[in-house]
Design a protein around this nucleic acid. Structure first.
Lengths: 161, 161
DNA sequence: TATTGTTATACTCTATAACTATA
DNA sequence: TATAGTTATAGAGTATAACAATA
């Protein structure tokens, strides 16, 4: 059994591109990627507002959602889904387990692997954060009509790989 | 004058959410934020493809674009535009200066401040990378019709703060 | 031999806080 | 006093590589 070190809570959201008044952004506005990035940063800010106090970050929240939707998920697969190395998936799982949100259970069919499961507390925390983050997500999207929201989502899916 | 330490070139793009076949993503798909994030990650991948070999990262590229479009830009303002602390803006400027892409000139009206300017080499590198990254950006967007591209950009601007 | 999880280590980017020199 | 830039230091998240146990 490994050492379960509790990693501290993140204090503030990551860097954010800002529109500073008086500066020329003409060169940036040629790229759709910049609009995408700025919208995505706004969405991250929503997340941090909704997840405030939970200690969750986007990868941790995503991990909880994935474990919740795929009980018995293995760390390697979790890492793959998150696009991080196995070692990182382990540290992430350590953090979630130390906080009592996720449980490692020995895999019945593979002695090398763990199956990951939400604990009762993990389910409650996930539900609460999901509700609050979801509310923030919908609040921002209410700037658009229902039709525009569907359009945006469909366009985004088409340009994502 | 500070020490101008040359920071190494980034090897690989940052983490990327992946659709792993067989996993349930139902819980994630409730959030527009996830579509946004996945599309944005794809756009980052485009950037790293286009900027390959240049050592540029998204913040460094953005910094070059901003200095190019705002000659004499001060570090503090650059940091603000990028959403990073002054100290970070300095390290970033150090990197760009050590690579000969950007020049610090004493500000004529304020003895404390630098004005940032692209060097000849900086202009050439920026032009080349801009062209290649722009091509990648447009290549992805060609999955959409012209009308859809305009729509996407407009929708993104409306949900960004 | 290959894979799962783990450990050790290092690197990148960021922040905070204290310093200096100018304003 | 306040601001621009700098320095020192630390933290968070990532990667790579080597290891043990199991497949």
């Amino acid at each position: 059994m490994p050492t379960r070190t509790l990693r501290p809570v993140r204090k503030s959201p990551p860097a954010a591109l800002q529109r500073v008044p008086g500066l020329s952004y003409a060169a940036l506005d040629e790229f759709v990627g910049f609009s995408l990035r700025r919208a995505q940063i706004a969405s991250f800010a929503d997340f941090y507002r909704g997840a405030a106090g939970s200690g969750l970050t986007p990868p941790r929240f995503t991990a909880l959602l994935l474990v919740g939707g795929n009980p018995g998920l293995r760390q390697t697969l979790l890492g793959e889904a998150l696009g991080i190395a196995r070692s990182g998936a382990m540290l992430l799982t350590d953090w979630l387990e130390a906080r009592g949100l996720v449980e490692r259970r020995a895999s019945p069919d593979d002695g090398r692997a763990w199956g990951l499961f939400l604990t009762g507390s993990g389910k409650r925390v996930l539900d609460a954060v999901k509700r609050r983050v979801g509310a923030e997500d919908r609040r921002r999207m209410q700037r658009l009509s229902l039709r525009e929201r569907r359009q945006l989502k469909s366009l985004l899916e088409r340009i994502a790989d």
